[in-house]
């Protein structure tokens, strides 16, 4: 589990949100904004008798990556499943909005989002959802200037509204442990039945929405090992690529005809999905 007192030195997955940022940024360049010592906690969890966390589960820091000004937001997956409430959501949205302003002033600044999240925190439901809409608007503004990179390394994965946020980013980097999908497996099982989606069958879930499958389907840009070194290298590599000429959100629209011709009588296999997603848009 992340943040446990004993962690593998070189693992990225096992680090806490704050340590992940520290390992990602150039040495001694990390400056945290709204530190936990400021005690900006959730006003809504306290009212419901739920123990809060001093950073509300999100760490924001400015720093440099390979010398380039970057703002990083990391979600702590261990706190409330990495769910976003008003404060944690506003931290991410507000940081991205300031990065947009910085670029508009002519000061290049990129962003990295380290996503471990089930999506909206249901105890703050509508304010979590509103914050996610604001995060999405800010990502779309920011990615016009400089890359916005999503990292989904697990163990929680990235679900709900924040999976849409990841999909809006310039680049997505995943590990084998990571999962990326709109609906949490348990929710799909409850809504659609166990035949449709067996949430407790881990190999099945990973075969559909795990990092390897997502990479082989072209839905993410990079598939890496769980090490701090490979995470940093992948992030540097994607920052150097700059703003993509066409964003994935636009490229994906070429798949409409392939989806309309898909046989939807039978269930889809991971292999079919890879083939369809890689070839269906006519972008080999």
């Amino acid at each position: 589990m992340s943040n446990s007192p004993v962690v593998k030195d070189n693992s990225f997955v096992e680090q806490s949100a704050r340590q992940r940022i520290k390992r990602l940024l150039d040495k001694d360049t990390m400056r945290e904004l709204i530190s936990p010592f400021e005690r900006v906690t959730s006003p809504w969890l306290a009212k419901q008798g739920i123990v809060s966390q001093f950073d509300d589960g999100v760490v924001i820091a400015r720093g440099k990556i390979d010398g380039e000004e970057t703002v990083v937001a990391a979600i702590e997956g261990s706190f409330q499943g990495g769910s976003l409430g008003e404060v944690s959501g506003a931290k991410i949205a507000g940081a991205l909005e300031l990065a947009v302003e910085e670029n508009a002033k002519g000061n290049p600044m990129s962003a990295v989002l380290i996503l471990e999240t089930g999506g909206v925190r249901l105890q703050e439901a509508n304010l979590g959802l509103a914050a996610i809409a604001e995060i999405q608007s800010a990502i779309i503004s920011l990615r016009k200037y400089r890359p916005v990179i999503a990292l989904v390394t697990g163990p929680v994965g990235c679900f709900g509204g924040m999976s849409i946020s990841a999909a809006l980013c310039s680049y997505i980097i995943m590990t084998r442990e990571g999962r990326l999908g709109l609906n949490g497996p348990l929710v799909i099982e409850q809504e659609a039945g166990i035949v449709e989606y067996n949430a407790s069958d881990r190999p099945f879930i990973w075969s559909l929405i795990g990092g390897k499958q997502r990479f082989e389907s072209g839905l993410v840009d990079s598939y890496i090992n769980d090490s701090q070194k490979s995470v940093r290298e992948a992030v540097v590599d994607h920052l150097n690529r700059g703003v993509p000429s066409v964003h994935r959100t636009e490229k994906y629209c070429d798949l409409l005809e392939a989806f309309l011709h898909l046989d939807t009588q039978d269930q889809i296999t991971p292999e079919n999905a890879q083939q369809l997603l890689m070839e269906g848009g006519g972008h080999e």
Binding site: L180, G181, N183, Y197, T264, I268
Partner: peptide
């Protein structure tokens, strides 16, 4: 909510 949707990346469709 469905297997086909998740596998084909419904998050990416909504992001579009």
């Amino acid at each position: 909510y469905g297997r086909r949707e998740e596998t084909l990346g419904i998050h990416q469709a909504l992001a579009a």
